[in-house]
Design a protein around this nucleic acid. Structure first.
Lengths: 247, 247
DNA sequence: GCTTGACTCTGACGTTACGTAATAGCTCAC
DNA sequence: GTGAGCTATTACGTAACGTCAGAGTCAAGC
């Protein structure tokens, strides 16, 4: 299939396809002698994934990092899309409630607080992240995302960021070893202590956090920057650490 | 309320509020001596409307034209938001179906066509416009939107565009008169003939189209560029014209 | 009164994801 | 062969903020 056929079928522009090719996000199967792009069924499958991620608000750069990873699991991603789309629909239901109540309010039928007027407008977080933030707090999530916000004391935050990055690198260096090994456990112990500095977390929570690193593509992507498969390794090492220290 | 309070309550950034003030979309009630923006409850009500339109994909420029119009009807707009949000949810349901079927397909449980893979991804039109296009065709809708696409024969399209604009101006000039007046009916007759050049439309359809000019803020906005209240006037004149010529 | 953290402002550059347009080559049915 | 439709690359422009710098304001606490 060539560009117009794909564009018409899918409902996107030819320009979008050019752009995606140019940034390496969706490279056509091959090109004709004339230089025409030819897309394969596999290309279309990739495009579907891209569009799901796009629909869910992921930046193209992030999408590219995710879908081009050798360990990218299409089925798992689809299941995650499903969950995120359900969350999106839940938010849309909230918006519908808000508009219905606003209509009633405008007709003088009910009272409505200012906060209620804006219920449902924030779509900025995916469900995993929301859950994680509720369970562990913003700082732990941001730490895992390696995206600490410049809150106050920039120097202090920078030092913490550097410390985290160093720890990620140490962990990446041993990620091909046994998660239960002495080196792995020493490094993951330091990770646990670092998180403890942000709050008191149970070992169960620590173990659950590790699982979330793997379950959510955003966490995975951010962590795997330091080395392919690091998120999986950390999950395993964190589980071992938690089990070992709870007995 | 000042910027941070509003931003936190609503879930948008302070920068957004600055931006909206700068472009005149949401100008705060007043400013303190220090120059701090102070937002009133009426400001927040306007903000809600803005966010609904934004949520539905309207460009800010369009939103501004709509909400700042003296004839802006908040209740009608809310009802329209509701309808459009319902349509959006319907599309989201389609996406959920698509992802569910894709999961089944990935597991080898069902067959799935390429087209099915992309069902639900196009959110680019509001429901009124979709309905109008189905009933009257693209050309009529674009003509009413005064946004003719450069399809072929650029010169020919330009001439048509000029003709349309002239007709809009004629209609705007008589919009304060009785829609049944001779001048109004002459002008609206020319509009009907212009549309007939694009296809055969019944008088009922013509009458319905006029109603749609008023029901959909996009149509209204585009038409009222030529004069405040022109869309309403055209609807009335079109109804008179249709009734008169069907008997 | 002074200090300090939080809040506020303006100005301005940068980012993202294309849309639009120009120019020119390619394809294929008539 | 012709011409309409399709294709390519190049490149500028746009919308809607995000980010940052530098400086002023506010109010609680000392």
């Amino acid at each position: 299939m060539k560009v117009k056929e794909v564009a018409d079928l899918v409902g996107i522009s030819v320009r979008t396809l050019h752009h995606y090719d140019a940034i390496g996000l969706l490279v056509p199967d091959h090109t004709t002698e004339a230089g025409y792009r030819v897309y394969s069924p596999a290309n279309l499958e990739r495009l579907q994934q891209i569009l799901f991620f796009r629909e869910l608000g992921f930046p193209l750069k992030d999408i590219q990092a995710i879908v081009t990873r050798p360990t990218f699991d299409r089925l798992k991603a689809l299941e995650q899309h499903q969950q995120m789309l359900r969350a999106k629909r839940h938010h849309l239901d909230e918006l519908l409630q808000t508009v219905a109540r606003t209509i009633q309010h405008a007709k003088g039928e009910i009272e409505m607080s200012t906060a209620e007027q804006f219920k449902g407008f924030d779509f900025s977080h995916n469900p995993y992240e929301q859950e994680a933030r509720q369970r562990w707090g913003d700082e732990v999530v941001d730490a895992s995302n390696a995206k600490l916000k410049a809150v106050t004391e920039q120097g202090k935050m920078q030092a913490l960021q550097d410390e985290m990055n160093a720890l990620y690198r140490d962990l990446a260096a041993v990620r091909h070893s046994d998660p239960a090994s002495e080196a792995a456990q020493a490094a993951i112990g330091r990770w646990y202590l670092l998180l403890q500095r942000m709050g008191n977390y149970s070992l169960d929570a620590f173990k659950g956090l590790g699982q979330m690193y793997v379950d959510d593509v955003r966490f995975t992507q951010n962590i795997d920057q330091f080395g392919e498969g690091l998120a999986v390794f950390m999950r395993d090492a964190m589980a071992v650490y938690a089990d070992h220290h709870s007995s």
